[in-house]
Structure formats: C-alpha cells, structure tokens
C-alpha cells in the first residue's frame, strides 16, 4: 500500500481496518475516528483519488492501492477552509477536506448528485449541490456555512 506517496508495509491481521492501519499501525493520525461505522465521514481518505470512509474498509483490501490522507493533501481548499472559518474543533476537518477534494473531482467528471434536478444533465456546482455532496461529513461544531463557502470559493 502506498500512503501519501510512500511505500508502506505492515503485517496486519485481516480484521484491521484501513483506518486503524493508518492511525495505530502506521502513525498516520490525520484521518479521524468519529463513529467507526461510516456514519460521520471523519475518516475520509482518498483511494486512487476517490473518497472513501477508511473505517469500513479492511486494510488488506487496499494492498497495492494509493491512499492519500490529509497529510498528503496540498490543495487550495485547505487555505480556503481557514479563510472562511470552515472549521472549529478541527476533528472533522481532515475528513471534510479529503471529501471536498474527492467531491470536486467527482463533479469535474460530471457526476450527478441527489440535488441534481435532471440527472441526465451535467450539474453546476451550486451551494445546494455542495451541501448534498458533502452530507456524508458531519460537523458537530456546525461549521457547515464556512465549509460550503470555502469549497465554493475554490470551485470558482
């Protein structure tokens, strides 16, 4: 498995999740554990560029794949989060940012969302679209407005 561009290897039991492999075995603590159930998005990482929740994957399934965590992200949306105060406690933030990066790529590829009026069309990234597409990332501090503003700013 490549993590943030570096080859890694670890002997792990098959039950070890991708998230625990990163946090507890590889010392990559950027992805956060909020629910361990796929319900909060705090553990979101990019696997070969696609956003996934790392808590519901087993690390063994990701052998040979490219995993990017917040530590490996260098994206304008990070600065935009700070400018727009799209964070408070910071715990959901790595997941929000990885999710935003993945989401922008999905949108650029023309993928629709539940907010897309006509799924046959190529949707424009309205605030309603951003909100729907980011709804897998909970923020209990309620920094949603700032997050949406940050993403909209970067998306132009």
């Amino acid at each position: 498995m490549r993590v943030n561009g570096a080859e890694t290897s670890a002997e792990l039991e098959p039950r070890v999740s991708l998230l625990d492999a990163l946090r507890e075995h590889l010392g990559v603590t950027g992805p956060k554990k909020g629910c361990d159930q796929g319900a909060c998005g705090a553990c979101t990482v990019l696997v070969d560029g696609r956003r996934v929740v790392s808590c519901l994957g087993l690390a063994v399934q990701y052998d040979g794949r490219e995993v990017t965590t917040i530590e490996g992200v260098d994206h304008p949306v990070q600065r935009a989060f700070v400018r727009n105060d799209g964070l408070q406690c910071g715990y959901c933030t790595p997941g929000q940012i990885c999710s935003a990066v993945g989401m922008l790529a999905e949108h650029a590829a023309g993928e629709p969302s539940a907010a897309t009026e006509r799924v046959t069309s190529r949707p424009t990234l309205t605030e309603a679209e951003i909100r729907e597409r980011m709804s897998g990332n909970l923020c209990r501090c309620g920094a949603y407005n700032g997050i949406v503003a940050a993403i909209a700013e970067v998306a132009g």
Partner: peptide, 16 residues
C-alpha cells in the same frame, strides 16, 4: 435508478 442510488447513504459510501 440513478436517483435511487444517489438517495442512498453518502458519497463516500457509494464509492465503496
């Protein structure tokens, strides 16, 4: 079908 799929779960989960 597209609408039903997109109504389910979250984007991350749909990617998995």
């Amino acid at each position: 079908l597209t609408q039903a799929l997109l109504a389910g779960a979250s984007a991350q989960l749909r990617n998995m």
